[in-house]
Simulated scan of single mutants.
Amino acid sequence: FFSPSAVPFAAGLDVDFRDYLPFDTPRDAQVALDALRPTALVFAKLDVWPVLVTAASQRGVRLGMVSATLRAGSTRRSAAAGTLLRDAYARLDVVGAVDPSDADRLVALGVRPDAITVTGDTRYDQVWARAAAADRTSDVLAPLRSYRPTLVAGSTWPSDEEPLLRAWGRLHAILPDARLIIAPHEPTAAHVSAIEGWATGQRLLAARIGSPAAQDADVVIVDRMGVLGDLYALADAAYVGGGFHDAGLHSVLEPAAFGAPVLFGPRHHQSRDATLLISAGGGAAAPDAAGLERMMLSWLRDESARYQAGARARALVRSGLGAARRAYDLIARLI
């Protein structure tokens, strides 16, 4: 992995070794290959390290990519990116694409047609397994179990919270029993304090997760990393952050796997999963605070509407299962 946000996930994997990828320089690539002496080098999603790929290929290391995807509007389809990356993609021995359109775009980027096959997205298996393993009697979830209509808002940014909290303030006046569990993407002291200040101004009881007051709070603030994936088990409906800025929408599959209908902001078009959720009737995008309030009210007040949308969200995740096995079979060909 390369992003610091992947550290908690990597720490939970049953593997012999985990660490950051080296910088893509000739020296760092040679040092990494000398230390690890891999039989195969397999990337996930899209990014390849061209220097590392070339060095590994020259050593006879087999190369692959799984859950491979490339958006129609990706900058990697530009002429400059193609010049830089085409040789690296052409060196891949096997590639498992998420869907046929991804496969076509990856071939145009340089992947050999005989190397590519459609295997699906392994994240569907991942989130399904996590949902199935969620322990509602755990120290995290048990104190928060409630019959109150609950929205779990995950990976929120200030750009999400401005319309979301404004909408929630109005919603709470209509549904005073409703509860918000909110997990900021960056739970810094200042970020958490700002949400607490908003709750105080709304005369809502706010508490941080793990505190004695959290069980009865109107607003539960998650001030730690690594628990959001399980907290979606408590959601009657979910909000996923990232749709009110340009950095990208976070994972809508995690709450969907629990059967929660998923709400997000208007900037979701780079997310294949969000588009599929909307088409399936298991998710919705809202352009502003009024739209958020309308959808949250619909799901939290109408049990039938909430159940139907949640069932469609979960069915979408179920339809993507099996990609992990297909990716495993693909990688096994390299070893």
Rank of each mutant, 00 (worst) to 15 (best):
F1I: 07
F2G: 13
V7L: 13
A11K: 15
R27L: 14
K45P: 00
V53Q: 07
A56N: 10
S57Q: 09
V66P: 06
A68T: 01
S74A: 12
G82A: 06
G82D: 04
L84Q: 09
A90Y: 02
A90I: 01
L92W: 10
V95G: 01
D99E: 15
D99R: 13
P100Y: 06
A103K: 01
D104R: 15
P113F: 01
A115E: 02
Y124H: 13
V127E: 07
R130P: 00
D135I: 07
L144T: 10
S146L: 02
S146E: 04
T150C: 10
V152G: 11
G154T: 06
L175V: 09
P176I: 08
A183W: 07
H185D: 03
E186A: 08
P187T: 12
A194L: 09
G201F: 09
R203G: 08
P212R: 07
A214H: 12
Q215H: 03
D223E: 12
R224F: 00
V227H: 08
G229A: 13
D230Y: 02
A233R: 09
A235R: 03
G241H: 01
G242M: 03
H245L: 14
A247R: 14
G248L: 08
L253D: 09
E254P: 08
A260F: 00
A260M: 08
R267E: 06
Q270L: 13
S279W: 00
A289F: 01
M296L: 15
D302H: 13
E303D: 15
R306Q: 14
A309Q: 06
A311G: 01
L316N: 02
L316S: 08
R318E: 13
G322W: 11
L330W: 12
